[in-house]
Design a protein around this nucleic acid. Structure first.
Lengths: 138, 138
DNA sequence: CTATATGCAAACCATTTGCAAGAGA
DNA sequence: TCTCTTGCAAATGGTTTGCATATAG
């Protein structure tokens, strides 16, 4: 389908813009994350690209994160996982049972956040919202 | 003032209820966190209670977290810090400059969150909202 | 008195780093 | 060709664990 290939080419363009090289390794790691239906730990990513060294997986994940292609998800128990950022701005619904993560965006929510920040004299640069619970399948 | 002493006695009651002992160590760690005006890393907590072994600081922080007396704050760069949970439900304004953390609560925000969860058929157990930026003092 | 909590040091484990070889542009 | 990237292995550093001792109840 076109969405995944556009993700790849978007990322390649981004890499180029930022002065990084387009390599099979980077494509591989990105594809592994994109193919998963839930956020992966570093170890899980590593398992999906056995030919790539662990150190490189760490380096690549950090790079993709800096580029905003993937984002870090903190689970309720503190565990760290990575998912594709499908939309530029969104929040997460994280299921404690099956570990699935659903993205959503809510202008209403964001408005409340901006109002709150303004009321506190806070200059907002970013924000995260994570909802934990049980998804409709569990 | 009475608020800090009530925190202490509340915590002691909680410890007792959950079958844990009230010790000078636990009081010390709690006081150290309570006295700080911004969230502390494990190391910073440890520095403030030099007589308590690092391993015990880890154990105590984990315990206080389980009891809901303190909560973990994830910084934008991934760093982990701990603050007192002064109110049962709140969110955080985290300053990237000075590291200060301000708590706030917003019924409006929480309502938007609940609506969003409901719309997704999600059974909410918990949620976190972290706003990153620059506080009014910076 | 008995079970829990603590300190210390060793063990663990995820992540980072240095360096030489490999690969993109 | 020249620089960026990767793999490997070693170093690192934060966190956990085992066990003997101390202490709350």
């Amino acid at each position: 389908m076109s969405s995944s290939s556009s993700l790849l080419s978007q990322t390649e363009a981004l890499l180029e813009t930022e002065g990084h090289r387009i390599t099979a390794t980077r494509r591989g790691v990105l594809k592994a994350i994109a193919a998963a239906d839930s956020p992966l730990t570093i170890e899980e990513i590593s398992d999906r690209v056995p030919d790539i060294g662990r150190a490189t997986v760490f380096r690549t994940v950090k790079l993709l994160q800096e580029l905003g292609v993937i984002c870090r998800v903190t689970l309720e128990n503190g565990g760290i996982r990575y998912v594709l950022s499908t939309s530029s701005h969104h929040h997460h619904l994280i299921c404690n049972e099956c570990g699935s993560v659903t993205e959503f965006s809510s202008p209403q929510l964001d408005q409340a956040i901006h109002e709150e920040a303004e009321a506190a004299g806070f200059e907002l640069s970013n924000h995260t919202v994570e909802l934990y619970g049980k998804c409709k399948h569990c």
